[in-house]
Design a protein around this nucleic acid. Structure first.
Lengths: 137, 137
DNA sequence: ATTTGTGCAAATCGTTTGCATCTGA
DNA sequence: TCAGATGCAAACGATTTGCACAAAT
C-alpha cells in the first residue's frame, strides 16, 4: 500500500513538488500493484475517486512521471498510449479485442540471435508485445 | 520489379479493383524492395511521382492493403503508424532520433521462455522492436 | 446500370500548449 | 514572495468519415 508519506517522498526524490494533483494520481497509479492505464482511464478514476484532475494535468503528470522513470510508456497501436507502473524489464500480452495489456514476467524470457546494432548505435530497450486473439477451436 | 500486370493481379487476388490510385500506390510500395513508410511520406512520393492521390485515399488504401495482408502495420510511438511491405516474420530496429525503422532478419531470432497464453487465447503475432540510440562512448 | 472508389472538407480522437490563475516552499 | 503547477479552452497532428462525383465491372 502506498501511503501519503511514501508518495510524498517518491515525488520529492523525483524532483517534483508533492501537489494535491500529483499525490492523487500517484496514489491511484502506485497504490495497488502493477497497472497499465491510459490518460483517459486515469481521468475517469480520478472523477470516481472524487479528486477530479483535469485531463491536461493528467497528461502532463504522466509524462513527467515517465521522464522521471516512475512509469514506462508502451506503444501498442498507432494512437493511444499506455503507461505501465512496472518499469522493470518485462514484456506484454496485448488483447486486441479488449485493448488490454498484461505483464509477462520477463525474467525467464530471452531473445537469441540478435545481430550487432549498426555502428555508432547501441540498444536502448527491447519492446516485445505478444498479440493474443481468441482461440476458436 | 513490379510491373503493371503483376500489380493488377496482386490487387485482384486481394479482391480489390485495380484503380489508377491503387495501382500507383502499389507500385510505389512494392516496386523497390522492403519499405517502411508512413501515409504522409507516401503522399509526398505520389506528388513527386506526378500521380497525386489524396491523403484520405492513401489512408484508406493502406488500411485495405493491411487488411488484405499485403502490408503490416508497425506501432512504434503513440502517434504515427508505419506500414511495412515485408509481411514475413521479422523484427525491427527503431532509430528514435530519426524516426526510422530497419528490418532485422527474423530467421535467426528466437524468443525463449514464453509462458502459455491464458485459456481461450492464442498468439497472433509477436512484435519485437529494438530501440537504438546513439552510442557516445 | 450498378457497384465500388475517390476527393474534399469537415469531423474525430488523442494529445499538447498558451495563458491567466492558484499554490507550495 | 515567487517559481512552479494547474485548469481551461484553443491548437494540434494523425487519421477517419460523409457525401457528391467519377470510374470500374
Amino acid at each position: 500500500m502506498m501511503n501519503t508519506q511514501n508518495m510524498e517522498q517518491k515525488l520529492r526524490d523525483a524532483g517534483m513538488r508533492p501537489t494535491r494533483q500529483r499525490m492523487s494520481l500517484g496514489k491511484l497509479l502506485f497504490g495497488s500493484g502493477d497497472r497499465h492505464i491510459t490518460a483517459e482511464q486515469l481521468h475517469v478514476e480520478t472523477v470516481q475517486a472524487g479528486v477530479a484532475v483535469s485531463l491536461a494535468t493528467i497528461y502532463n503528470t504522466l509524462n513527467q512521471f515517465t521522464e522521471a522513470g516512475l512509469l514506462r510508456e508502451v506503444a501498442v497501436e498507432g494512437h493511444k498510449s499506455y503507461f505501465d507502473t512496472n518499469t522493470s524489464n518485462h514484456c506484454h500480452y496485448y488483447l486486441e479485442g479488449e485493448g488490454r495489456l498484461i505483464d509477462i514476467d520477463g525474467e525467464q524470457l530471452t531473445v537469441d540471435g540478435l545481430p550487432l546494432p549498426p555502428a555508432g548505435m547501441k540498444i536502448g530497450r527491447i519492446d516485445i508485445i505478444v498479440r493474443l486473439e481468441k482461440d476458436r477451436g
